[in-house]
């Protein structure tokens, strides 16, 4: 576990500067791989159960294009602003980082509020997760993504506080980079959710 802060090979971004940083980022990629398996399993169960509405409502009746289009817009934009925040970190611009990450957080919160409202509306319509196997699968899949977003918001906030206190160090920049990876990952999952569940659902 030797620390080499710089190498002779040339420029390395700060998050990759230490051995520890490199290991953790690599490990985080692997973790995201495991997350993909996790979501794939949830997708598979969803498609097994998608027609098991038990006489209850189907996706076609429940999904509202307006809501999920808005959700998609918010999350995709937040992924973009998150990327800008990481770039700002690379340029050592604290203002840029806090500004863009702040926007990302707001967009993420907006997404979350829309999703919670959507869920509340469904439950009110007697279309909660205990209504049918289809709805169980729907709530679990979309809800798991939602929980990931919630944790992501908490994590990003925590990292922002740490950056506030400590500035850009190899450790904090590694954390910023990892939160960025995580946020993009959530976006990728959402693209699948959006296209296979909502779009196919209303089609």
């Amino acid at each position: 576990m030797e620390t080499t802060t710089s190498t002779t090979k040339g420029y390395r971004p700060m998050e990759y500067a230490s051995e520890e940083g490199r290991l953790k980022i690599f490990g985080f990629w692997i973790f995201l791989g495991a997350e993909i398996v996790l979501f794939s399993t949830l997708f598979a169960t969803y498609f097994v159960l998608v027609n098991q509405t038990a006489g209850g409502p189907s996706g076609k009746e429940l999904f509202e294009i307006k809501i999920f289009a808005m959700e998609t817009f918010l999350l995709l934009t937040s992924s973009f602003t998150c990327g800008l925040a990481v770039l700002a970190m690379r340029k050592q611009s604290k203002r840029g980082y806090f500004g863009w990450m702040g926007v990302t957080l707001l967009l993420g919160l907006g997404f979350l509020i829309l999703e919670i409202e959507e869920f509340a509306m469904l439950v009110e319509m007697n279309a909660g997760p205990t209504r049918s196997a289809f709805l169980s699968a729907f709530f679990t899949l979309v809800g798991t993504h939602g929980i990931h977003v919630t944790l992501g918001i908490a994590w990003v906030t925590g990292v922002m506080i740490q950056v506030w206190k400590r500035g850009f160090t190899p450790v904090t920049s590694r954390k910023i980079f990892m939160t960025g990876l995580y946020w993009h990952f959530l976006d990728v999952v959402w693209i699948f959710l959006f296209s296979t569940i909502y779009l196919l659902g209303v089609a």
């Binding site: 006489g55 409502p57 429940l62 007697n126």
Partner: peptide, 8 residues
């Protein structure tokens, strides 16, 4: 299977 309001 309970009838749901949006049954079709």
């Amino acid at each position: 299977e309970p009838q749901s309001p949006t049954h079709h």
